[in-house]
Simulated assay, not measured.
Amino acid sequence: MFKSILLACTLLVTACVNAATATNIASAAEKVSPLMPGLTIPALTLKDKDGNNVVLAERFAEKTTVLIVYRGGWCPYCSKQLANVQKIEAELAELGAQIIAVSPDNPEKLAESKIDSPNYQLLSDDSLILSQALGLAFYLDDKTATIYRNKLGVNFVSLDGKAKVALPVPAVFVIDKKGLVHFQYANPNYKVRLTENLLLAAVKSVSEQ
């Protein structure tokens, strides 16, 4: 009997742990709650295009960071945003800032990107741990999810026991060496992105502190 109780408790704890991996995914893009300025980015580890582990806290400690969260390389609005930020990469570097762009794309997909710079790194958040920690993850409705999967190559993922599609709301954070957020821009309307001039101004304000 004791063994049965112990097994039941173990299964219950395991279920709770598994469920916790998908508890911060909103039901719609308009219902996300992005991490606000003044808060610290959680210490997490992601993978680069070669599958190597990258500890975010260690990267943040190197210099001011522009953290871009995007939906994936399949998204034309995201690709345009990454390209536009690439145009001001030199200016950001002069301000002492690096660029880290994160998406649900797996490392193999990231390897297809033409962005190749030591100061502009793409990382994989294919398990959505960072998107959830930043309060950006949301579930697509079934109709939209099917369209995205069939026409844009987005795969269904199993989260919290449900075969659904979850994506991050596109966002930009400016973070200091301690991982503290100084600036945040997140918009449920994925077609509207932060301008390069505003991003430069935000980074400049952090570098002058």
Results as ranks from 00 to 15, higher is better:
Pro76Thr: 12
Ala20Cys: 08
Ile88Arg: 05
Tyr70Ile: 08
Ala20Pro: 01
Glu62Ile: 10
Pro76His: 12
Val66Met: 03
Gln86His: 04
Gly73Ser: 02
Asn84Pro: 02
Asn53Tyr: 00
Trp74Asn: 03
Pro76Ile: 15
Asn84Arg: 14
Cys9Trp: 00
Asn18Cys: 06
Val13Met: 14
Glu62Gln: 13
Asn84Ser: 15
Cys16Gln: 05
Lys80Asn: 11
Thr40Phe: 11
Ala20Glu: 09
Glu62Val: 12
Ala19Lys: 06
Leu82Ile: 03
Thr45Ile: 06
Asp50Glu: 12
Asn53Arg: 01
Gly72Glu: 08
Pro37Thr: 14
Arg59Trp: 06
Ser33Glu: 09
Pro37Ile: 07
Leu12Trp: 09
Val32Asp: 08
Cys9His: 00
Thr65Ser: 08
Gly72Met: 11
Leu82Pro: 02
Asn84His: 13
Asp50Tyr: 08
Ser33Lys: 15
Gly51Ser: 12
Ala43Ser: 04
Val17Tyr: 06
Ala28Glu: 12
Ile41Met: 13
Trp74Val: 03
Glu30Lys: 09
Val69Ile: 14
Gln81Gly: 04
Leu44Gly: 03
Val32Ser: 07
Val17Ile: 14
Val66His: 05
Glu62His: 04
Trp74Met: 02
Gly51Glu: 10
Lys63Ser: 11
Lys63Leu: 01
Leu35Met: 14
Leu11Cys: 13
Pro37Lys: 12
Phe60Thr: 02
Leu44Cys: 04
Cys16Arg: 04
Ala83Ser: 12
Gly72Asn: 07
Tyr70Lys: 10
Ser79Tyr: 08
Leu44Phe: 04
Lys31Ala: 13
Asp50Ser: 14
Thr40Cys: 06
Asn53Pro: 00
Thr10Gln: 03
Cys16Met: 09
Asp50Gly: 04
Leu39Tyr: 05
Gln81Leu: 09
